[in-house]
Design a protein around this nucleic acid. Structure first.
Length: 203
DNA sequence: GTCCTGATCCTCT
DNA sequence: GAGGATCAGGACG
C-alpha cells in the first residue's frame, strides 16, 4: 500500500511487463486504473496513481493513427509498452502508452493521476498548491511529472519513466463513458475512470 | 507554401 | 461560461 508522500522506490518485479500492454487496448485502458505512473528525473521522483484513461483504436476517427503511419504517430505502430507523447494546442503535451503488437497503431491516453510522491516537486512545476489541480488533466500530469517530448518513444518497462503495479485493482468501481475534447468518434464509450475519485479531470 | 484544426489549460467575468 | 494563448501536423494546391 502506497501512501501519499511516501518515498517511491521500485524493484523490477513491480514494473508492469511488456505483455501487459500487448493486449486489447480497451482492456489495457481499463486495467491501468489503480497502477502508478512513476518518473525519476534529476530533480527527484514524482509518481501518481492512474485514475482516468482513454483508449484510442486504429479504426477510430479520433485516433492519430486512423489514417496510417506518419512521422508524428509512428511510435504508436511500434512495439507495446512505449511512450507516445505529442504536442497539442500549441502549448501542452499529452502522454500515451502504446498497446497491441507491433504494426498496430493503438494507444491509451493517461488523463489523470492521484499524486502520491514528489508532491512538492509537482507543486513547483505546476505553480499550483491544491493537490487536485496537480494531475487532473492530460496536459497537467505531463507538466507535474516533468515529462518532455524527449521521452517520446521511450520504453516504459524500464528506465526513468515506468508504470508500476498498484494495489489489486479488483473491486474498484470503474466508470466507462465517452471521451473528452474530441469531435470525431465522440460517441464511443472509450474513457475509463475510478468512480468517486476527486482527481479525475472531469465527471 | 498556405491554411486550418486540434486527445488543453488558464484567466477572467 | 467564454475566449485567448500558441504551434505542429496534415490537407490541399
Amino acid at each position: 500500500m502506497v501512501k501519499r508522500g511516501q518515498l517511491f522506490s521500485l524493484s523490477a518485479k513491480d514494473i508492469l511487463p511488456r505483455s501487459f500492454y500487448a493486449r486489447d487496448t480497451q482492456v489495457v485502458a481499463r486495467e491501468l486504473l489503480g497502477h502508478y505512473l512513476v518518473h525519476y528525473s534529476p530533480e527527484g521522483v514524482a509518481a501518481g496513481k492512474i485514475v482516468e484513461t482513454e483508449a484510442y483504436l486504429q479504426n477510430d476517427p479520433a485516433c492519430h493513427a486512423a489514417r496510417g503511419m506518419t512521422r508524428r504517430n509512428r511510435v504508436m505502430f511500434g512495439p507495446p509498452g512505449h511512450a507516445y507523447i505529442y504536442f497539442i494546442y500549441g502549448m501542452y503535451y499529452c502522454f500515451n502508452v502504446v498497446t497491441r503488437e507491433e504494426g498496430i497503431g493503438e494507444a491509451v491516453l493517461i488523463r489523470a493521476l492521484e499524486p502520491v510522491a514528489g508532491i512538492p516537486l509537482m507543486q513547483a512545476r505546476r505553480s499550483r498548491q491544491k493537490i487536485t489541480e496537480l494531475c487532473s488533466g492530460p496536459g497537467r500530469l505531463v507538466q507535474a511529472l516533468g515529462i518532455t517530448r524527449e521521452q517520446n518513444g521511450q520504453d516504459i518497462t524500464s528506465g526513468p519513466l515506468v508504470i508500476s503495479r498498484g494495489e489489486k485493482n479488483d473491486g474498484l468501481p470503474v466508470v466507462k463513458t465517452t471521451r473528452i475534447g474530441i469531435k470525431n468518434g465522440a460517441e464511443l464509450p472509450l474513457r475509463f475512470y475510478l468512480a468517486g475519485s476527486p482527481f479525475v479531470s472531469k465527471k
